[in-house]
Simulated scan of single mutants.
Amino acid sequence: MNPWKVLVADDDPNVREIIRLYFEKQHIQMIEAQDGEEALELAEKESPDIIILDVMMPKMDGYEACREILKRFDIPIMMLTAKGDEFDRVLGLELGADDYVTKPFSPRELVARIKAIFRRMQKGRTGTDQDAQQIYEFDGLSIIPDRREVLAGEEKIILRPKEFDLLTHMAKSPGTVYTREQLLEQVWGYDFIGDIRTVDVHVKKVREKLNPLGNDCIHTVWGVGYKFEVQQ
């Protein structure tokens, strides 16, 4: 039996009912919210393992709910949207969402993506002892896997889980050039079925947090992908 607790926020009761019936078959506990404000309240009260947010909701839309939830909690978020425009998909990822599903969707696909997120989370928690004990130090930058910390000098940099995983993976092999496809497979996992732009979004977020402190360490290799390299 899956011990998962999933919060689903959608103002359409029919959508929630379809998801709830399928979740019951998969032995997934579902918590329901009708809008973004209720989702925020339940996130604090129920401590779900993952949150699914519809974009178009009253009182507080999915994007705003995503922002507020990530300010307070470290919970994976999946965006649920009827919009097919690339801008809307990328916006959710830029805000910190882990994945998205576009309506109309099948409950089976939704559960498959949830399972993929949990597998990636578990993979991130179960690295080798050697990886956990290793500290990666560069000019003014320290990456400490066992504490999942990044230090720029003495200042601690707060990275989202997947941002940390991406940075650490590339820092293990400085100078190695990775394609986006390779990073998706090696960091997110072969079963990730989201947008390849996910890599670009996460690289952008890491740069926004490190570059102002003088740590320009992820470089674009035009026409190929990215590499980690700290200029001495």
Rank of each mutant, 00 (worst) to 15 (best):
R89A: 10
A97N: 08
I28N: 02
R180H: 11
V8Y: 05
V90T: 02
V199K: 03
I144R: 05
R207Y: 04
N215I: 11
V90C: 00
E17I: 07
Y22F: 15
M170C: 05
D191R: 08
V111F: 06
G127M: 14
K71G: 03
V6E: 08
R148Q: 12
A171Y: 04
V187F: 03
A33H: 04
G84R: 13
E154W: 13
E94C: 01
T179L: 04
V230A: 09
I157Y: 04
G84Y: 08
K103I: 06
V201Q: 02
I157S: 00
K162E: 15
P174T: 08
K71V: 04
R20W: 10
R119K: 10
M57N: 07
K209H: 01
E229R: 11
H169G: 06
L159H: 05
A65Y: 01
K115C: 04
L40N: 00
K103E: 11
E68N: 11
A65G: 00
L21R: 14
D61T: 02
R160F: 13
I196L: 12
Y178R: 01
L210C: 01
D10Y: 05
N14M: 11
L167M: 12
E46D: 13
I18M: 15
L21N: 14
P174R: 15
V221F: 07
I28A: 06
F87E: 14
L151Y: 15
V111M: 09
V101W: 00
P76Q: 01
A82M: 03
